[in-house]
Design a protein around this nucleic acid. Structure first.
Ligand SMILES: [Zn+2]
Ligand SMILES: [Zn+2]
Length: 506
DNA sequence: GGATGCGGGTCGT
DNA sequence: ACGACCCGCATCC
């Protein structure tokens, strides 16, 4: 096939190092000239060869939520993308980012997950399926062969990146710790009710408040949740959207807690969703808080290792690898610029967004469009615009962009190509999918998207997390975020209730 | 509990 | 035959 040669040549890659093989070949390349560095967010029709010593490769890890899928081939592991879970109302988190949860891999767990509510606005959560491969989920293939692990991806994710696995795990464990300490606190309190009864408003309140938040974020079930004789029926019942004052104040706390965290998500004060269609309800990037400049908070670390999770978005940066990620350019993102760069990005955000939108999955916007009605997750405008844009047409700008952020580089270093690197951005982009009649697409959402992170580079999900698992008494990370909470001590009562009803199946 | 792998089996093309 | 996908089983953390 001249295809391979052409592709390899076209991308200026040594033949055999990239596309000279296919995961299905009966015989894989001998001893690969070199091994690729592990890519956490492979996107597009790319192939990599990892060392069989690479642990992440051994575990078939990916930033994307990939689930195992049966291909009836014991030698090749196939996985398909589950997409991303977002807030149905696409609300903007305090830091301007959008909620982008990692879909649970387990079917059952995923169903439960979808019943939960947005920790930020209490509206429903929505699972955005991946349809980046001919209308079907992007698929990844893994094959171990001698000293190498061959990886091949098919499809271009047409959705934002979910929270990375490490982020999810970190949050999970943090939550667990807090829950544990909370219970302990409860016990302790139960045992010595008189003690400190008067200081209720200080230390104890904070504890419960914090817990409440946790509940909301991770435990509060969906609308189906019904609790008999609760202290706060209105909140627990179906009307989570019209929840009265309680909820309101509640939300206030949450919000403040969000803002409390140092924001490493410096990178993107831009609206991940509703990018294309700035309709009513659209949140202008310029309106975003500008606390993103603390360049010092930029994690130099890369990935999978920071489970400390003192902050949520730490990863959003590291996750932002990506090769010829058009997105990165569009934001005026320039590695090594430090604060200036950030500022710049922030400023250009909107403008550029407008400019390039058309180049991105034109249909997506519909899904992410912020619902005008602030009342609820109600109607989601579904505009079926099919503005097809050829990849070629957009190449210019892409190629110009020299700087790129990589998952494992610091802001100042941009020594090597990131993620898919120059490798993935080539012509073959239009491989299979393009050949498939869009009309035949199983879903109506087929589209051509440039590989990269149009969606990705954004502040990741922001969940309140504890700063230190131990201090439930007195100074918790939320102390500073709970101004004037004194009057809401009543919440402590509900907390207990909430706990008992940890959703659960039916 | 949930992430992962595996593989039998169904269904549409 | 191929690919997507459902489902249960088993392991591991
Ligand atoms: Zn929301
Ligand atoms: Zn995907």
């Amino acid at each position: 096939m001249p295809a391979d040669a052409a592709r390899d040549a076209g991308r200026g890659c040594p033949p055999g190092t990239t596309l000279s093989w296919d995961i299905n070949d009966p015989q894989m390349p001998r001893e690969p000239a070199h091994f690729d560095h592990f890519r956490e967010w492979p996107d597009g029709y790319v192939r990599f060869i990892y060392s069989s010593a690479e642990k992440k490769a051994q575990r078939h890890l990916s930033g994307w939520a990939m689930r195992n899928t049966n291909n009836h081939n014991g030698h090749i592991l196939k996985k398909s993308c589950l997409g991303v879970v977002v807030c149905a109302r696409a609300c903007a988190l305090p830091d301007g980012s959008r909620l982008q949860l990692r879909p649970a891999i387990c079917d059952k767990a995923r169903l439960k997950q979808q019943k939960k509510i947005c920790p930020n606005c209490q509206s429903a959560l929505e699972l955005i399926p991946c349809r980046g491969h001919s209308g079907y989920p992007v698929t990844n293939f893994w094959r171990l062969d001698g000293s190498a692990i061959f990886f091949q991806a098919k499809g271009v994710h047409d959705h934002p990146r979910p929270e990375s696995k490490s982020e999810t795990e970190a949050r999970r464990s943090a939550l667990k710790r807090q829950m544990a300490s909370f219970y302990q606190a409860q016990k302790r309190r139960a045992r010595e009710p008189e003690v400190g009864e008067n200081q209720e408003s200080s230390g104890q309140f904070n504890n419960t408040s914090l817990l409440e938040n946790l509940q909301l974020f991770d435990v509060i079930p969906d609308t189906s949740f019904s609790s008999p004789g609760q202290t706060c029926p209105s909140f627990l019942n179906s009307d989570i959207y019209t929840a009265p004052c309680d909820l309101a104040t509640f939300q206030g706390h949450i919000t403040s807690s969000f803002q409390k965290y140092p924001n490493p998500s410096i990178y993107l004060p831009r609206p991940p969703y509703s990018y294309d269609l700035a309709g009513p309800g659209y949140t202008s990037p310029s309106a975003y808080p500008t606390l993103y400049k603390d360049s010092s908070s930029i994690p130099s670390d890369t990935d999978w290792v920071h489970l400390n999770a003192l902050q949520y978005n730490v990863n959003s940066y590291s996750s932002y690898e990506s090769s010829f990620d058009f997105t990165s350019k569009q934001c005026g993102w320039k590695p090594g610029l430090g604060k200036l760069g950030l500022e710049e990005r922030t400023e250009h955000g909107q403008l550029q967004a407008t400019t390039r939108c058309p180049y991105y999955n034109p249909e997506l916007p519909c899904r992410y469009l912020v619902t005008p009605s602030a009342g609820g997750p109600a109607l989601q405008t579904v505009i079926t615009t099919t503005t097809k844009v050829s990849y070629q047409a957009y190449q210019g700008p892409a190629l110009k962009h020299s700087s790129d952020v990589q998952e494992d580089s610091s802001l100042s270093s941009c020594s090597f190509p990131s993620e898919n690197g120059p490798v993935s951005i080539c012509p073959e982009l239009l491989d299979p999918p393009s050949a498939v009649p869009r009309a035949a697409s199983p879903m109506g959402r087929t589209s051509l998207k440039i590989p990269g992170d149009f969606w990705a580079n954004r502040p990741a999900v922001a969940f309140p997390q504890e700063a230190a698992p131990s201090r439930m008494d007195g100074a918790n990370p939320w102390d500073m975020c709970l101004p004037g909470l004194g009057s809401e001590i009543s919440f402590s009562d509900r907390v207990g209730l909430l706990f008992g009803y940890d959703s659960e199946d039916f």
